[in-house]
Design a protein around this nucleic acid. Structure first.
Ligand code: SF4
Ligand code: SF4
Lengths: 166, 166
DNA sequence: AACTAATAAGACTAATATAACCTTATTTAT
DNA sequence: ATAAATAAGGTTATATTAGTCTTATTAGTT
């Protein structure tokens, strides 16, 4: 019941890109270094975002990444869908999933409402908002390697084996 | 971003137990066969639920499973927590997770609100409600092997490779 | 045209989490 | 005693997630 690391990486890319003037391109390596993310894996993530139509890239010298859509029209929910596919917290929430009880299953309905509530929250603020927030902090758009945004999510996550079953 | 199969199995166990008169014990094998779940895996799940204090078991002849708490005091959210541990859709939502930006990170706040909204929905109806619903359907508490509740979630889930990235 | 710095693509591997199985104990009513 | 049930925990299998590596392609610069 977690979003994947890749989704979080993608969110960070989008925040990064939403925070710079429209036409400027940001190198993927810059993002990787700034956020301490594995570069190759980030590039793969970038490709998914490109295919989802959220960002665009240019190769070659002075190439890089840029938003393909207005920052105020993208939300975390969009990124989640782009990276992990259509959201469905249980298989039976896919409309193509068959279950004979689906039509009147109360569990299904509860799960659906829970998911909808979650997605609604994830859709409330756009990356334009998020980038503004970032700008308010000590966040820099320069290409040097200050780690204003570093958070070592992965390593911390790995030791999270502690089940809360007393 | 899915609940695990084990969580769904646990939900089914609880629905099953909530639907029978208080003192009666249900054999775990009965649940497994009725819902077409792998018996050994189900037993492991049962143990988790026991340790979480949600159900109690008795071994030996005429042993079985039974709710350890009133059906109207348990929700799907409780089961989710029992099986998967404290809910956290991103590592930084664990209060013991450190991130220097946590205190004023907007992403964190959005994720927290999304999670809260989801959990709130999952907490709205109790298993007493759910069992009532089941009773309304053609659901039987007899120990024969009618598969009133069968849903082949696992197999369907496995072919769900279709990423929605156009 | 040649060079260089960038992304593109995809195969490959590694690590982790999830799911399932199996075997041996332990308990309890009969 | 015996049979029928769960308890426990080790082992395996599978799926997902994360990350790496290699080679190609593109585009600006000189
Ligand atoms: S029985 Fe209900 S919860 Fe289970 S798969 Fe069918 S619709 Fe979903
Ligand atoms: S920067 Fe924000 S979203 Fe990322 S780990 Fe820290 S608190 Fe969570």
């Amino acid at each position: 019941m977690q979003i994947t690391r890749q989704t979080e990486y993608a969110v960070r890319i989008l925040i990064e890109l939403a925070g710079v003037p429209d036409s400027k391109m940001i190198r993927s390596r810059t993002v990787a270094e700034k956020h301490q993310l594995p570069e190759k894996f980030l590039n793969k993530t970038v490709q998914i975002l490109v295919r989802a139509g959220l960002i665009e890239t240019r190769r070659g010298l002075r190439g890089g990444l840029r938003l393909a859509v207005p920052a105020d029209s993208v939300t975390i929910a969009d990124v989640l869908t782009a990276i992990e596919g259509k959201v469905a917290i249980n298989p039976c929430l896919h409309e193509n999933h068959y279950c004979e009880h689906k039509s009147d299953c109360r569990v299904n309905k509860i799960l659906q409402r829970a998911q909808d509530a979650m997605v609604a929250e994830l859709s409330k603020e756009t990356f334009a908002d998020l980038a503004r927030e970032e700008a308010g902090k000590n966040f820099s758009t320069s290409s040097d390697l200050r780690r204003d945004f570093a958070c070592f999510v992965t390593s911390v996550n790995r030791q999270q084996k502690d089940r809360v079953v007393p």
